[in-house]
Deep mutational scan, measured.
Amino acid sequence: TYTWNTKEEAKQAFKELLKEKRVPSNASWEQAMKMIINDPRYSALAKLSEKKQAFNAYKVQTE
């Protein structure tokens, strides 16, 4: 089980997950979700809006 003390740690864990699963920077949210949804870190960020925000930040960083 994973635990995160801060929102920032949770966001980092979520981005690490995207990186580890090699989600391409041109992937849509739907494509990315299919690649990461079974990992416990997918739940790091509770709100869908937070997940999408972190995903978009990840995409910008990896382009």
Rank of each mutant, 00 (worst) to 15 (best):
residue 1 T to K: 15
residue 1 T to G: 15
residue 2 Y to K: 15
residue 2 Y to H: 15
residue 3 T to M: 07
residue 3 T to Q: 14
residue 5 N to E: 15
residue 5 N to M: 10
residue 5 N to K: 12
residue 6 T to I: 03
residue 7 K to Y: 11
residue 7 K to I: 12
residue 7 K to Q: 10
residue 8 E to D: 07
residue 8 E to L: 06
residue 8 E to H: 06
residue 9 E to G: 04
residue 9 E to F: 03
residue 9 E to Q: 05
residue 10 A to W: 02
residue 11 K to Y: 15
residue 12 Q to V: 09
residue 13 A to V: 10
residue 13 A to N: 05
residue 13 A to K: 05
residue 14 F to I: 01
residue 14 F to W: 03
residue 16 E to M: 07
residue 16 E to K: 05
residue 19 K to A: 14
residue 19 K to M: 14
residue 20 E to S: 08
residue 21 K to D: 01
residue 21 K to Q: 07
residue 22 R to H: 12
residue 22 R to N: 11
residue 23 V to N: 00
residue 23 V to G: 00
residue 23 V to Y: 02
residue 25 S to W: 11
residue 25 S to H: 12
residue 25 S to L: 14
residue 25 S to I: 11
residue 26 N to C: 14
residue 27 A to M: 08
residue 28 S to A: 06
residue 28 S to Y: 04
residue 29 W to T: 01
residue 30 E to A: 11
residue 30 E to L: 08
residue 30 E to N: 11
residue 30 E to P: 12
residue 31 Q to G: 08
residue 31 Q to L: 13
residue 32 A to N: 01
residue 33 M to G: 03
residue 33 M to W: 05
residue 33 M to T: 07
residue 33 M to R: 12
residue 34 K to G: 11
residue 34 K to V: 13
residue 35 M to I: 10
residue 35 M to Q: 06
residue 35 M to N: 04
residue 35 M to P: 01
residue 35 M to W: 06
residue 36 I to G: 01
residue 36 I to W: 01
residue 37 I to T: 07
residue 37 I to L: 10
residue 38 N to E: 10
residue 39 D to H: 01
residue 39 D to L: 01
residue 39 D to A: 01
residue 39 D to W: 00
residue 40 P to H: 09
residue 41 R to V: 03
residue 41 R to N: 02
residue 42 Y to R: 00
residue 42 Y to A: 04
residue 43 S to V: 09
residue 44 A to Q: 03
residue 45 L to K: 00
residue 46 A to N: 07
residue 47 K to P: 06
residue 48 L to M: 12
residue 48 L to Q: 07
residue 48 L to K: 11
residue 49 S to A: 10
residue 49 S to T: 11
residue 50 E to A: 05
residue 50 E to L: 03
residue 52 K to T: 05
residue 54 A to Y: 05
residue 54 A to L: 06
residue 54 A to D: 02
residue 55 F to L: 11
residue 56 N to Y: 14
residue 56 N to Q: 12
residue 56 N to C: 14
residue 57 A to L: 11
residue 57 A to E: 15
residue 58 Y to P: 02
residue 58 Y to A: 03
residue 58 Y to D: 04
residue 58 Y to I: 03
residue 60 V to Y: 09
residue 62 T to I: 10
residue 62 T to A: 14
